[in-house]
Design a protein around this nucleic acid. Structure first.
Lengths: 198, 198, 198, 198
DNA sequence: AATGAATGAGTTTTCATTCAT
DNA sequence: TATGAATGAAAACTCATTCAT
């Protein structure tokens, strides 16, 4: 599974060769087909393996426990970066899966969709609503707007992370301090933007 | 080229078959190899075709001519959506190319990078700086922060667009009115966030 | 290898089809490419197979053990004919290889050259010198001249052999008695020509 | 024709591409097929072109005019070397043709056979018989033996010539003086071998 | 008559999948 | 259960030959 993940993530479904996967995993090709029936099944199993892995370590308490927006976003950003650093292949596989697995069975599609949803509006709502409830929101500013902006911030952090990782492939968490600082700036502006002035 | 673009965009490099491309383009396989030497060259030529096409119609005046942030972002958003609607295959191809063309010659990589750059920080700075110069920015808010937030807004719009297009593949501009409305909300919050209160 | 040898020998590099080789060898095309990477490698392997085969059976004692020129040349001729009858495809392949393998790697060229050298001046010198040392050579006759004439005799025998084999493809050793008789005549004349008269 | 000759001689029937022949001859592919119907016909025409060229310049008087064996063979050798230097491609094409044109029409085969015959026993007999008639031949030495030995000498000269040309591709006639000297040695030995001692 | 773009049958090559051991 | 040699359908690629211009 680990080898399969690496190969599919780096080369895509068609680019990954069963021969290579077997060789790098130090097993025979035959055994792969005994356990996974065919390449498509192997791919799906790998997809599931990746989502399970991320799901098993994902710790949403970083969201729930935060007392204010700044803390929440900073923690969440740190956490997401850490996750992406720790599981870059899982992320890449799942990000590509949507496009590649257009003819995958619906069970798989569900799993993939799940992964995506964790980064979308609905999920964001759950996370930040409790905090927003405690804050005085300026008139004319909808929850949806704030959620969109927060997602935008996360997208932007994702982009900045990607850029940094391309420049410095073996980065560790401290290399991301600048990005965390940027996030603080974003949140500060957002709060000024949607909170009532007293 | 048009057929090649469609096939590569929909099926990826390996999924696209030269036979199919030839057949759909109503030409013979042979002539493809006469002009493009091999599949890899055909892919690169298609990439160039896509970037050229987008570059040839891209009209950056929507950015320069705007008098305020709201107008600029709204126009730019409309324009980008329109472009993406008009050239969905070009966008898809180029978005995937980054991952697929890991062993492409550097000349091609340059082209792809170019396409990506048009959606990054450096470009954003050029666009919005003239407008920011005319506005009273709150202390403690850096240009970089504002640029990052703007990019976040664009990313978010991109995501919302993608989602909408998946739900409604044959959408037209009017279907995107809600998204435009969202953008207005985002900008309003941002401006409240980084402008000095009088 | 055996089938490959036959096909390449009869049809040349380009005329031999991998499909045919596979079919006649009662194996699949695929397995050929697994073992030999591509057609060029298969050809080289076949070349090596042919040289090895001939080298492995070549018994140069027929040269060394002879006590006089007549015995040596007659034995050698018989032996060479026998070899060529036994390995006609190997001979044909290697004879053609020199022309075909103009872009072969130098390792291969070495092998081919080796095969050719066994039929040249340097080799001939080694073989007949011990015998010539025991004979009274007429003044004005150089070793080189005698070697050249011996090679000429061998060339001529080769030509006569080829002609006979074309007329009678399934000839056996006894069919070559006339040629052996010719050789005796040649040697007789040569000896009269270069030995001192007592 | 000249280009065709060069290409076929260097690459063989299958290795020569009509595209290349056309390009190097600075004509269109189309015109080749108009004049020669197909590749096989082009090949045959080229073969005929080569034999005609050699036949048109071949001057057999060098054989007939000689008064003694030494003069004859030396002249003939010089002449043959000159011919081979002047028409290396024609020689190569015709030498290969025998193997390649196994399915050529019989008319062609006749032409090729003709070329070969000029270098065989029957032809040799015509050439040297008049001279031998004037010489006292030792008992027990047959005409056939002498012819065979003379052919052997010519073969050997051919081999020496080939070797020299490979070492020194742009050799001229004077570079072959050593070979001519060798020939003198060969003939001297042969004459001593088959003439009656007085 | 001359051109060279276009064709497609024919070859080489790849790779998921099977199966004897 | 595990192996990896063997298979052959499917893809890439070549090139003699045709044909519109």
């Amino acid at each position: 599974m680990a080898t399969s993940l690496t190969e599919f993530a780096h080369r895509g479904y068609r680019g990954a060769k069963t021969e290579d996967i077997a060789q790098k995993a130090v097993v025979s090709k035959g055994i792969i087909f005994r356990y996974y029936k065919n390449k498509a099944h192997l791919y799906m199993a790998t997809l599931k393996f990746a989502t399970d892995r991320i799901e098993s370590v994902a710790d949403y308490s970083v969201w729930h426990d935060a007392q204010d927006l700044d803390a929440m976003i900073v923690n969440a950003t740190k956490y997401k970066i850490q996750l992406q650093l720790q599981y870059p292949e899982e992320f890449k596989l799942l990000l590509d899966a949507y496009a590649e697995a257009s003819d995958a069975p619906s069970a798989l599609k569900h799993e993939i969709a799940e992964f995506y949803n964790n980064q979308t509006s609905a999920n964001m709502a759950n996370m930040i609503d409790p905090i927003l409830n405690r804050l005085p929101i300026r008139n004319n500013v909808s929850r949806k707007t704030i959620q969109g902006l927060m997602l935008g911030v996360l997208d932007q952090v994702g982009a900045e992370t990607k850029t940094l990782m391309q420049k410095k492939p073996d980065a560790d968490l401290t290399d991301f301090d600048d990005i965390i600082e940027n996030v603080r700036g974003y949140i500060d502006v957002l709060e000024h933007g949607f909170l009532k002035k007293e």
